[in-house]
Design a protein around this nucleic acid. Structure first.
Length: 230
DNA sequence: TCATTAAATTGTT
DNA sequence: AACAATTTAATGA
């Protein structure tokens, strides 16, 4: 069998963007890629560390967080299985500005910076893809600012869950996400108790199903459309 | 494989 | 913040 033909299909299992590459490019990516495993709750890197990889989540869930001056942890974003992140840091060649923590047992695919930069500079389609990815993320952050001005807790939780499920950035998602209500509360900037009640509200509306350490979302569209009426 | 125990998570006040 | 109830994970027979 021609090994060049297998490069793309091998890469496709961990990188949904494999199709935009040529066989030669896919082979280079595989050569520059590694795998890392983390247990639930362990740090992938701390703020200020160098972590010079573009990173894809094969399985698991990763949160971006920092510690406030008051010593309270604040979670800013979550990335689900299938998502790729860190391109901003890699492009700027900077240390990480946030802690990265694995929320559940997590497998990462990591692409080293030289290979990433080579792709960026030599593959038009990859640069095109990155632009799209950055544009999507920009839209997400603006939506986050908008969400944080919404005061109804159920609507906030709904919006943050939709953010975690966003199909454009995280296409390999199944119909549920493994996250505790406490962590979801961190994401939404709510207490665990309020998050618990918000989930009950959403569940009563048939939009989510709260299970142990897991939240199922049968219809992302309907959840995205949830609005507080009062 | 099953029962017991510990730990984590959730529901409620 | 505290407490009880529930679920999962770990242990060992």
């Amino acid at each position: 069998m021609d090994t060049r033909l297998s490069a793309k299909s091998e890469l496709r299992t961990v990188a949904f963007w494999a199709d935009i590459l040529s066989e030669e490019e896919a082979a280079s990516v595989i050569a520059g890629m590694g795998e890392r495993r983390y247990h639930a709750g362990s740090y992938i890197c701390h703020r200020g560390d160098r972590f010079d990889f573009w990173t894809g989540i094969t399985t698991g869930l990763v949160k971006m967080s920092a510690v406030s001056e008051a010593g309270k942890p604040m979670t800013y974003a979550g990335v689900c299985a299938g998502g790729w992140f860190g391109e901003g840091t890699i492009l700027k060649n900077e240390p990480r500005k946030y802690d990265l923590v694995a929320l559940c047992d997590t497998h990462l695919a990591v692409l080293n910076r030289p290979t990433f930069m080579w792709l960026f500079e030599n593959s038009f389609r990859f640069a095109q893809f990155l632009t799209h990815q950055l544009n999507e993320r920009m839209g997400q952050f603006i939506a986050t600012i908008e969400s944080d001005r919404v005061h109804d807790p159920a609507e906030r939780v709904a919006r943050h869950l939709v953010r975690l499920f966003n199909p454009a950035l995280y296409p390999n998602m199944r119909g549920y996400i493994e996250i505790t209500q406490e962590e979801l509360g961190h994401l939404a900037g709510l207490s665990r108790q309020v998050t618990n009640r918000a989930l009950a509200t959403l569940e009563a509306a048939g939009l989510v199903k709260a299970q142990h350490n897991r939240i199922a979302v049968p219809s992302l569209e309907r959840l995205a459309g949830y609005r507080y009426d009062g």
